[in-house]
Design a protein around this nucleic acid. Structure first.
Lengths: 147, 147
DNA sequence: GCATTTCCGATAATTCCAGTCAAGAATAGG
DNA sequence: CCTATTCTTGACTGGAATTATCGGAAATGC
């Protein structure tokens, strides 16, 4: 399974969300703002965040002055979690999910499993907080201390 | 980019090809035999092997008593090479291929790049010969010494 | 020449993806 | 209560990719 636009938009949007929460803590952020500043189609982003909410990544508040907030600190939300909520756990082949009927006698499945584990390790070891820090560095700003 | 059926068929088929070459060295193997023993649609396998030939993974001989042979020893053909010939180099997101227009300021691309490198390392470090050995072990056979 | 087998291009069925549309429900503020 | 705002949900669509299938052409061994 590949990593779709949904997941990529999500990671970008969550980084922006984390940034805005840092500036104005406790205040829900409107999707419209995120969509605009990161150049993401709003209505598509709505789908994405609905899935993120169901996945326990963000909290929402409806109505006027509503919006989204991270369910946990940015440093505790891994990229793997985000991808899993939108595309499922990324695996290069179905073999890795026990769907391969010829597990016995098919030495190939082991490669796909190892590849999947490698991806999980990378994505699971990186958090939205990390990305925010990297982004600060790329933009040449003084990095804030992300809690 | 994900790893499609083409690549998975290819890896299975190449393992079978390696096995048969080991038994009868120098003799081209018919696709029909591989398709039958590994339960792969023949005409689809033809497409796959045409791409493998163009990618320099296998050699072919046409006509009666023709067939396919590995272009190099099985221990020198990496899974990555096979996948690259069929699906392109597997990357979780296009960002990793320089197509991301906002590389500056997008801290996210680094994650996808790291994930891709992790996959490449696993797939590049495993050869068809390795898979043949693993398959022997799974089948409980005495493993041959694969050159 | 004939059977065999790779080679090649066109085509079709299905599924997936990215994005849009539209109606509905909750909330804040007046 | 009323209204504007914002999330919530599901259906829908156009296009692309995937997974084949079909038919024949070219090469080779006998």
């Amino acid at each position: 399974m590949n990593i779709s636009m949904k997941s990529r938009y999500a990671v970008r949007a969550l980084t922006e969300l984390a940034r805005r929460e840092e500036i104005a803590p406790g205040k829900p952020v409107r999707l419209g703002d995120i969509a605009e500043s990161r150049d993401i189609p709003l209505q598509f982003l709505e789908q994405v965040f609905a899935a993120l909410r169901r996945g326990g990544v963000v909290r929402s508040r409806r109505g006027a002055a509503g919006g989204y907030a991270l369910a946990r600190p940015a440093a505790e939300i891994s990229v793997l979690e985000v991808v899993a909520a939108l595309d499922g756990v990324p695996s290069p082949a179905e073999c890795t999910q026990g769907l391969c009927e010829r597990v016995d006698g098919c030495g190939a499945s082991s490669v796909w499993i190892e590849a999947q584990q490698a991806v999980e390790k990378v994505l699971g070891g990186t958090t939205i907080g990390d990305l925010l820090t990297r982004e600060d560095a790329l933009r040449g700003r003084a990095p804030m201390y992300h809690i």
